[in-house]
Design a protein around this nucleic acid. Structure first.
Lengths: 355, 355
DNA sequence: ACTATTTATTAAAGCGTTTTACTAAACATA
DNA sequence: TATGTTTAGTAAAACGCTTTAATAAATAGT
């Protein structure tokens, strides 16, 4: 093919040295305005663009960000982390970075270390979701800046962008309380997960504030994870003994599991039981009834993570940043708010997602 | 930080030259088994791994694959191309590639050229979905191998992995015919799109085979694109004049649009109208009734694209590959198959996606 | 006018690999 | 034994940049 044009060609064309060309490109050193112009023009005319590999080698900057996800999270149908990823992907471009995605097994293992770390091929790392502490430690020892998204390392001060889980849990519960429900159940799944824990905390906080006692039997938190099937089972468990007026599920998947169970048992939602979820995944508007939930701005999580990570890359000893992203109650049909004549502060009941 | 260990360190430790180390790593040249062992051990002990940037610079291989998507397709909620992307992402890792994603505007523009092309930072390119021909040309002129996914360039022999749209359209239509429907409508959106065109073709083919006349008025193909809202509108248009017994929508989004309209008008699905979609997006199992559709293996599209692209990268003049991925009818509730006592050859009616 | 300082440019080293051409040793061939 | 052929290993150039230290020219200070 037509040979690649290099910095040498630009030097030759302008009669300057390659050093000068480099300085102009990177806006460094003292270069006369006039020569700058000349160089820029030559670059334009030749269609020159610095080769990434050479630039990386010389400058020790790769222009890449690593994105590490535990394998379970990458399950091909899980949209939550996919969206976070797309957010980082999108935002990275604004900062002229590319993001390299990889998954790692839950357990740390020497030969599960992401290749981009071994190859020295990233300038910083984003960890999304639950992650084994040893991966973080590995990255730390490399001296790379990193940030966690939607997770936190207990007992370790790390940079992280998190969801306001407590606030969201409170919000959802308060909403149910405001609608007059008192016997409210909580369905949680893996309560060890910081996010679930936070949502549960918010749940209890709201109840306490309202002076409603939190019935332990109404809190099903034993399931191993937060998939639909476990929501279904938790709901089943719940209804064998009790009859809650409302359910707050720690995420939409589980909430949808509840909906499934209730539909099977012919228990009407929201007339007999109200259901509120958390996350606002796409499915919410497709299920029947449409699910009231707490919206997490998933892409935004990724976006914010990139913003901070880039800061950290640019400025060494930037320090630790910890940010909590606000959430928002999205009222739809599964909580009975409409029925009860409540003002629905929702954005676009009818047309939403008619995309 | 602890300084990076380089090939020099390995050379020093083994008392060999760096050339030999390199040869061992890349399994080239003539190196005694014995020395090979020695080198490998030293590498192991030192924890050496070749730096990507240096390797790239010297070998002119980047280890990256570019993934180019038109902006509309990247709309953050569009799961179709996201899944294709995840498929490539996943498969790439098996081949030790990373994939760099970028979007481009619909119209070609000199300064919309993906940075990874300018930087010489990819070994090959995947184009997903509808793409302006000039981008393809640009890549071609760079001498880079490339492959299209879910699109084709009319009048140009390019490598591509496509869906069997015609077969799928035929399948869906035949299914409706088998159920006894005769007045079958087609809702298409952008008929210029090769995929839609193919599905329409399959539709007509099936009708013809069955000796059923294709009523032009039953084919709504004027909408600008295939979003939910346009399915809604097309359906509305349809029902102002006609009363089809069944609808075959060219994709699930539009099919869901139909469902919305029909629910609003209180027209029962499938009792009064049967609906079949195409793609099998996640929402299918959440809508009411669950949507019968033609499943496209979206991740698989990405996987296959990577497989072929890697071949092309490894073997220059590999030639053109064109592959059609088969599709599969997924019978659910919107077509009335159950009601009519038909055998339902579905995988997991009840538990599917209870993930 | 002479020195000190600032400004503009460059030569050259370095980044960490791959690869080619070369050498030396070992082995075959006759 | 002399010669050709493998085999094993290496020196050195190349890949295309950045960056540092040095130099030269212009400007300022007295």
């Amino acid at each position: 093919m037509n040979k690649r044009v290099t910095i040498k060609d630009v030097a030759k064309k302008t009669g300057l040295s390659i050093s000068t060309i480099s300085l102009v490109i990177n806006n460094k050193g003292n270069v006369r305005e006039e020569t700058k112009k000349k160089v820029l023009q030559a670059i334009e005319e030749l269609g020159y663009y610095p080769a990434r590999s050479a630039k990386s080698l010389a400058s020790r900057e790769t222009g890449n960000i690593g994105f590490i996800l535990t394998e379970e999270h990458f399950s091909r149908s899980e949209p939550f982390y996919t969206k976070i990823f797309l957010g980082t992907e999108f935002e990275s471009r604004a900062y002229n970075y590319y993001v390299l995605l990889t998954t790692v097994p839950t357990q740390f293992s020497k030969n599960a270390v992401p290749r981009f770390l071994l190859e020295n091929n990233v300038d910083g790392v984003i960890f999304a979701g639950k992650i084994n502490q040893r991966y973080v430690k590995y990255v730390e020892e490399l001296g790379l800046p990193y940030i966690l998204v939607d997770y936190d390392l207990p007992g370790k001060k790390v940079s992280a962008v998190m969801i306001d889980n407590v606030g969201g849990g409170e919000m959802a519960t308060e909403h149910l309380l405001n609608l007059g429900y008192r016997k409210i159940a909580f369905i949680g799944g893996d309560i060890e997960h910081p996010s679930i824990k936070g949502r549960f905390e918010g749940f209890k906080k709201a109840l306490e504030k309202a002076g409603v006692e939190c019935d332990k039997d109404m809190c099903v938190v034993g399931e191993p994870d937060t998939r639909v099937i476990n929501g279904y089972r938790a709901c089943e468990k719940l209804f064998t003994v009790l009859k809650p007026e409302a359910i707050f599920a720690a995420n939409d998947a589980m909430a949808i599991g509840c909906l499934r169970f209730l539909k099977e048992k012919n228990i009407k939602v929201p007339d007999e039981v109200a259901v509120v979820g958390f996350d606002d995944i796409d499915a919410c508007i497709h299920v029947e009834p449409r699910l009231t939930t707490v919206r997490v701005e998933k892409e935004e999580l990724g976006v914010v993570a990139v913003k901070h990570l880039v800061e950290m890359i640019k400025k060494p000893n930037f320090g630790i940043t910890r940010v909590y992203l606000p959430v928002k109650l999205i009222v739809r049909d599964s909580c009975g708010a409409g029925k009860k004549g409540l003002v629905v502060f929702n954005d676009g009941q009818v047309n939403e997602s008619l995309t």
